[in-house]
Structure formats: structure tokens, C-alpha cells
Design a binder for these strands. Sequence first.
DNA 1: TTAAAAATGGCTGATTTCAGGGATATCGTA
DNA 2: TACGATATCCCTGAAATCAGCCATTTTTAA
Lengths: 207, 207
Amino acid sequence: MIKVLLIDDHPIVMEGLKNLLSRQEDFSVAGCCATGAEGLKAITTLNPDVVLLDINLPDIKGIDICRQVRKHNTDVCIIALSVHNERPVIKNVLSSGANGYVLKNSVGEEIITAINAALKGNTYLCRAARDIMSQIQEGELTEMPRITRREKEIMALISKGLTTAQVAEQLFISPHTVESHRKNLIEKFDVSTMTAVIKLATQYGLI
Amino acid sequence: MIKVLLIDDHPIVMEGLKNLLSRQEDFSVAGCCATGAEGLKAITTLNPDVVLLDINLPDIKGIDICRQVRKHNTDVCIIALSVHNERPVIKNVLSSGANGYVLKNSVGEEIITAINAALKGNTYLCRAARDIMSQIQEGELTEMPRITRREKEIMALISKGLTTAQVAEQLFISPHTVESHRKNLIEKFDVSTMTAVIKLATQYGLI
DNA sequence: TTAAAAATGGCTGATTTCAGGGATATCGTA
DNA sequence: TACGATATCCCTGAAATCAGCCATTTTTAA
């Protein structure tokens, strides 16, 4: 009997997942968590074989949860559930230690397939995610860059409509510094304007 | 027996909703649709008493579906399901003809409550949505403005990192016109820079 | 059908951003 | 401890944005 832990903050989705798994012979629901913190605790205490992990939880970022788990536990299979169909997000989640990626608009069977694949040591992507990943991106342009704490702070303020000078004032730093961060962000996201940075960052849930 | 039509593009959520309703004595699932177009058709053919409508469908905007329905049909109760907890979005959905608003991270009972309230002629908001709406907003600042097709087009291009001149070239219009739209957008969103516009528009799912 | 809203085009000038070069200090970790 | 990543600071000039106005035509709604 394969023990599955469910982590999702939407009770209705949880309902659907439980239902889905209950129809399978060899799966049992080991536990249900609505937050990342609960989830992390449950993984150590319940020691499940598989975790179905919603990537967008209220408290902890899905990527961080994967990283946390992988620090100590390399056995558990993590299947990421998400609404995000952006290529960089998928890539990031997978490289953070997930064994599968299933979009929430997939049919239930894909989740089962993903679990079985992961248990066999394979990485399964749902059809839609596979399609996205297999698209040849012109020069691998849009990777999700690693963004520092300070940079996030600055993006948040800029996105609210503050100018460089206003951001500088708010953070008690020189406008030149804000300019530098701005430049770095534009470079990291590989775009040419700050508006493009803000759009991508918002899409990726960075701010 | 109250006939309920389900419209949601996530099979797992659908599963959960069906499960939830099946536990209720007096509700029956009249049909399930994964797209807005199917949904609109089903509403006329199946004539349900209640529609559980996911606001974020792949093809048609939830707000537009509500408007469409309300053109001809004033009887059917529409309960909006959504992940959006932004005040302007909620307000917009309700004023487009929805009889209730339930966030997807609500417990299933809230959906039942919302349906029953709507059938009695009341408008029900889930706890979290109610909290958001009752917050006294400083001067009712952040209403979701009505955005035209052209404006959306321009926002989309600007958000991709194009400059005013490039947008003008792409749309075969004068840069001055783009400037005008830009100005209107900044005014409509009541902010002072285009980056702020892009962030809000992305959040509200406008682009 | 009439009025309002949207889309188009225009001008000027002050302010801001962006690209391009730098440089130094701090912090955590290997 | 030494390295790498982060955060801080600085300059200049070209290019773009934003605020402030206005006007015409076409759609859409009342």
C-alpha cells in the first residue's frame, strides 16, 4: 500500500484528490495538509511514499518546500501540482527536487500516471507541461533568474508605482543603488524595460 | 430537486464539486462544462437552477459569462468560484450579475451556503471575500477600471518590453496614439507609472 | 437618433529611465 | 580564510516617459 500525503490549501481540490486516490487499489491517503509548514512536518512524521504538493501555498513557496525536503529526504516522491504553465516555473520546480509536474487542468489520470512514474524513478510531466517544455525556446531566453531579497523589495516598490528616487528615499539608500538594482533586474530577466520585469515577476509570483 | 450546472476547467476541482453536491440531499448535478462556451450553451439547454462558475476559464472571462447570461436569463443563480481575492475583481464579478462569490480556498460548506442564500434571493460572499470587501479602503481607490480592447492590446505589448515607438509600429498607428492610450491607462488605474499599471493588470488577469 | 465612450492623432517640456562603464563593503559558506 | 554572491555607491549621455493640454472620427450604448 502506497502512502500518499496531500498538501493543498483548496478544500475542494483536496476533496477531488481524495476521491481520485480512493478509486485506486494500491494508494492510501496518509494525510492532508493545507499549508507548507504543516506539510513539512507531516512528511517527517508520517513518512509518506508520495507527496502531492500544490506549488502555490499561502505560507511557503513550493520551490522552497521541495528544497527543504530534499535536504534530508531523498526517497519521497514529490509530484508538483500547479496552475502555472510557464516554462521557467516548471523548470525551477523540477530542479528543486520534484519528481513530476502536473497542471491542475489535467485529468485525474495524469496524477496517477505521474505517481507511478515517479515511484519507478522517472520524472513525469503532464501532457500540457511536456508540450511547453519541448517547445524550442529561442536561445533559452526566459529562464527564471535567481532574485535576491533586496531586488524583490525594489521590484515590489517599483511595481507600486514609485520612481527610483522614491524607492531610494523609502529604503534609505542612494538613488544610484536603486538604479543598479534596476539594471541588474533588467539584465537578469533578459528584457529591456522595467515594465517587462514587473510583468514577469508578477506572473512568476515573485511579488 | 435543485439542478446545478458545474463550469470549471480543472477536472480535479470538478471531482471535488461533484462529490460535495452528491452528499447533499436536494441537489443534483445537471451537467459539467470545462469551458465558458460549453457553459453558456448548457445554461440555455439544461436550464439549471444554479451555476457554479469558475471565474478563470481558458476561453471566456467569468465577468463576460455573467453578463451574457444576464442578458436573457435573470432567474438562474450564479455562484462565482475564484482564486482571486482582490477587492476590485470581486466587486466586478458581483456587479456583472453573480449571486455569490466563493474563494477556492474556502471549505465546501461555504459553497452550499452560498447556493442556498442565492436561491433565497440573497448574495453570499465567503468569509474571506466578506472580510476583504468590508475593509474600509482609503477613498475607494483601487477599483478595477473598464479597459477597452485596444488598451488591453497596448498593455500586452508594453508588458512584453516594447517601447511606445515599437508598439506604434506593430499596431500601425501613430506613437502619439500609443502615448494617449498610455496616459488613459495610467489615469484609469489611478497610478503614476506604467509599471504600476502592468502589475495591476497582470494581477487582475487582464493581460 | 442622439449622446457618450473609444480610438485615433497631435504638441511641448520637464523628468526619468536605460545602457555603459566603474568601485567598494559586507556576508555567508566552503 | 578566501571566495562568491550580494548590496552598496558613482558618472554620463541618449532615449523614453509623463503631464498638461486639445481635436477628429468612429463605435457603442441609451
